[in-house]
Design a protein around this nucleic acid. Structure first.
Lengths: 206, 206
DNA sequence: AGATAAGTTGAGGGATGCCTCAAGTTCTTG
DNA sequence: CAAGAACTTGAGGCATCCCTCAACTTATCT
């Protein structure tokens, strides 16, 4: 099935590793569109070598992102493991944004419409479905407002990712404050009718 | 006082106007870092002429932004005119974001730490003070949660500006939905203790 | 060790965007 | 209607980032 991945020559394997380490670091603190030259330089390798191993930025992302996404998966599991559906929902959001606040690249990945390799995309979709379980559970328990849907989660991620990016360097916990306020508006008992002109939920399915 | 602004030659004045019109349009729908060449081309003028009239991007902004800020001022006034402090607060936010959603450039201006000419900056500061009156009034009326401060307004603007930008082309009213949720968390009676780790208000004064 | 396949290198070509300035054009004024 | 001042022009230099490829180096295998 899978094309037999021919074994790399020893030096090539080493360079590949150095590139992955460098890419992970640089993406994490410069974001996903950091110049590839920086990554090559940090890996102590020429730009040509980088392109030899990863012909496109997307290929490099596909090699680097899965680790970050695994961390996210752990957060999701922890959230689902919480016996209280609301607490689980809060745990999920806190964990998600905490990860994003530590990893500029993950922030980009979750947020910008990035071209991702199909298998990475698959992981994302799976994560999205797990997140949906968290949301549904909290709604069914009558704790999360009934009109909150997955598109709203996406919107929330956009919103918070901006807050995270903007405050990262000066007051890195600002997002917690913002999230606190937001969460208070998501509790079922806080729900008021939407502002006039606000799209109804089905309008903005992604 | 003010340095006598020597009268422009007629053709120069015409070009200047064309540039302002073009800049207003392009900034509004491409954002504040649209290529200056685009603006020159749309004005039907060479790039050199643009630089002749506005030696820096900042100078061009200083000539273009006041109009947008005036619109914002009108929103602020309307908000203060509302007899109900909470409704005024809501009016303010709705008006602010509605403007941003129509003007990509204003969205950038309010959001990114842009280098602004001192007099434009002055207008911004004034607007900020007016906004503070709206916030304080809503808090004193016991309608807006007591722990909401001006830094939180800044954060909210960051958050919403991202939502606006991201949904502008596909579902331009998404921000209203998001704002509705957020507002429900800002009502005094919705307030819950902040999440652990959230900075206290004084931490993130800008 | 020598032959060969595998891997590396970095200069260089292409885009885009910023900004300048010498040469040309056009308005204004006497 | 000159002539000089005011203004415009666009090619070109700079910088950044993209990506490629012919010449070189190195690991591996016998």
């Amino acid at each position: 099935m899978a094309a037999a991945p021919k074994p790399l020559r020893s030096d090539a394997a080493r360079n590949r590793d150095k590139l992955l380490v460098a890419a992970t670091e640089i993406f994490a603190d410069r974001g996903l569109d950091a110049p590839l030259e920086h990554i090559a330089r940090r890996a102590g390798v020429s730009i040509g070598t980088l392109y030899n191993h990863f012909p496109t930025r997307e290929a490099l992302l596909a090699a680097v992102l899965p680790d970050q996404l695994a961390a996210l998966e752990r957060v999701t599991e922890a959230a689902l493991a919480d016996p209280d559906p609301w607490d689980g929902f809060v745990t999920f959001l806190e964990g998600l944004f905490a990860l994003q606040s530590r990893d500029h690249g993950l922030n980009d990945a979750l947020t910008r419409g990035f071209t991702l390799a199909t298998d990475v995309l698959e992981v994302c979709k799976q994560g999205f479905l797990d997140a949906e379980r968290i949301v549904v559970r909290a709604k069914e328990a009558g704790r999360l407002r009934a009109d909150f849907g997955m598109p709203d989660l996406v919107t929330l991620i956009w919103a918070m990712s901006r807050v995270i990016r903007e405050s990262m360097d000066t007051a890195p916990d600002t997002w917690r404050r913002c999230l606190s306020f937001f969460l208070d508006g998501l509790r079922a008992e806080a729900a008021h009718p939407l502002l006039p002109g606000a799209p109804t939920q089905t309008d903005n399915r992604p």
